[in-house]
Design a protein around this nucleic acid. Structure first.
Lengths: 191, 191
DNA sequence: GTCTATATTTGGATAGAC
DNA sequence: GTCTATCCAAATATAGAC
């Protein structure tokens, strides 16, 4: 059975706890001692697994964005016309932002500035694969007359609108995620 | 002549430089030594003007949000129908984000999490006055059938879309600010 | 009101035993 | 692979002279 090896378990656990802490307090205000505590290690022991604190953030981001690409690609691959595809992507991104993956995704949206310039470039390259999926769907929607603003511009505005939901949207409130996705879709496409 | 006193000049200069540095590097990665350097002081001398590093961030935010309220209120007070008012507010917010006020406004959007919980509450109260102006305009637009999504939801999505422009929009590029504002307006209102 | 000097804490990271 | 112990740098903030 495809059971993860203990070695990978430990690393995976650390990445999850790191995502949670970086999301809750910000990368800069999270100490390596807090990270170590969260996985039941002494701070020095962390450096057996990672070269530096920054490399932990980098690993969180890489892992998270790979996952984002996977989920978004799956949503884009579902059958349907351009409207249905666009709705699927909106729904997928909101699920990434508010489902089980939320901590890592929040970090991906709002903590990348704590990386060195070099690491930022590296992450940007990864992120481009994610954005390409979006752009293809938006260009299709544009050709079909579903959206009238430029796809590139539309995506950038949408990125901000979606990312910001982290700061106000609670899926257990009166507006459920399906409904939010629907409203975003209405706003984006012909009303 | 209403000339600012030297005492106020110094404080004002520090707030401007602090906004610039906090915007460029983030509050947490800006040291008091850098702040002091930027205004030609030794680090210890800063504490004659401010109680703590956090109180500098708080002062930047208070000053900036007061200014945001002022500008937004002015835009809202201009004559015109609900569509024109909405367009004026969009334009005003984008000017705040990309004009001379941009550093402070960027800090207001993305650095508030570095404040203590108490200070965050304080800033939130101030910010509510800003948001009230938006909500009134959006409710008007909603009554006139200009927008169909809930005004409150619309504002939250718009906040994110606008704030995120910090990370990609450059007013000296091919898309000027008037044009961007126009596109945002198109997206928001009936297309 | 600014300086110099420094107290004090905390942070990331390393060394070497086990 | 983890622990203990600790190094070292950097940070915020303070004290007291000028």
């Amino acid at each position: 059975m495809n059971r993860t090896a203990p070695r990978e378990d430990r690393r995976q656990l650390l990445l999850e706890e790191a995502a949670r802490l970086f999301d809750a307090h910000g990368y800069d205000r999270t100490s390596v001692r807090q990270l170590a505590d969260a996985v039941g290690l002494q701070s020095g022991s962390l450096f057996h697994h990672f070269d530096s604190k920054e490399s932990i953030l980098l690993a969180v981001l890489e892992h998270t964005i790979e996952l984002m690409i996977e989920r978004l690609a799956a949503a884009a691959a579902a059958p349907g016309d351009s409207r249905q595809r666009l709705e699927a992507l909106i729904r997928a991104e909101l699920e990434l932002l508010h489902g089980a993956t939320r901590h890592g995704v929040a970090v991906a949206f709002f903590q990348w500035r704590s990386l060195s310039t070099q690491s930022q470039q590296q992450i940007l390259k990864l992120r481009e694969r994610y954005e390409t999926i979006w752009l293809e769907a938006l260009e299709l929607a544009h050709r079909d007359g579903l959206i009238v603003t430029d796809p590139f511009l539309t995506r950038r505005l949408l990125t901000g609108a979606h990312g910001w939901t982290i700061y106000w949207y609670r899926p257990d409130g009166s507006l459920d995620l399906d409904r939010l996705a629907e409203e975003v879709g209405r706003l984006l496409t012909r009303q």
